[in-house]
C-alpha cells in the first residue's frame, strides 16, 4: 500500500539530510526506497501519541542501579600493538584516516584548526 503524500514523514530531501547526519552513504536505490519504508514505520510508531503520558516520568534505564562508580585506579591497558592491530591504515604508531574535504559524506565537513 502506497502512503498518501501527507503521510510521508521523510521525503527524499529529508532522507538525504538524515543520511548526512548519520554519516551514511546511501545508494540511489536506497534514497528512492527509504521515504516510503521509513515513513510507514514512523506512522506506525506515532500511535504512541494516543497514550496519555502527561504525568509520567520517562524510563531510560531499567537496571534499577544508581551511583555506580569505581575508584580512581590505573588498571591494565592494551599495548600499542594490540591497539593498532585491527587498523586498516596506520603510520608512526598512529591510526590514519584519509582527509576528505569535499563537504560530502566524509568526516571533514569543516576543517578545524589544531594549533599545537
Amino acid at each position: 500500500m502506497k502512503l498518501t503524500k501527507d503521510k510521508v514523514r521523510l521525503g527524499q530531501d529529508k532522507v538525504k539530510h538524515v543520511a548526512k547526519l548519520a554519516n551514511l552513504p546511501l545508494s540511489s536505490e536506497e534514497e528512492e526506497k527509504y521515504p516510503e519504508q521509513l515513513s510507514k514505520i514512523l506512522e506506525y510508531v506515532e500511535q504512541l501519541n494516543k497514550v496519555d503520558t502527561s504525568n509520567v516520568e520517562p524510563t531510560f534505564n531499567v537496571s534499577g542501579q544508581s551511583n555506580v562508580v569505581r575508584v580512581d585506579k590505573v588498571g591494565e591497558c592494551l599495548n600499542q600493538e594490540e591497539a593498532l592491530s585491527n587498523a586498516p591504515k596506520k603510520e608512526n604508531a598512529r591510526l590514519q584516516t584519509p582527509e576528505r574535504s569535499d563537504g560530502g559524506q566524509g568526516f571533514f565537513v569543516t576543517k578545524g584548526v589544531f594549533a599545537e
Binding site: K73, G75, C77, L78, N92, R94
Partner: peptide, 18 residues
C-alpha cells in the same frame, strides 16, 4: 576506563583500551 590519564608526551596509542 582504567587507562592512565597521564598521557602527555607519551608514545602514541600506548594508553588505550577497548
Amino acid at each position: 576506563c582504567r587507562c592512565s590519564a597521564d598521557y602527555f608526551g607519551k608514545e602514541p596509542n600506548t594508553h588505550t583500551c577497548p
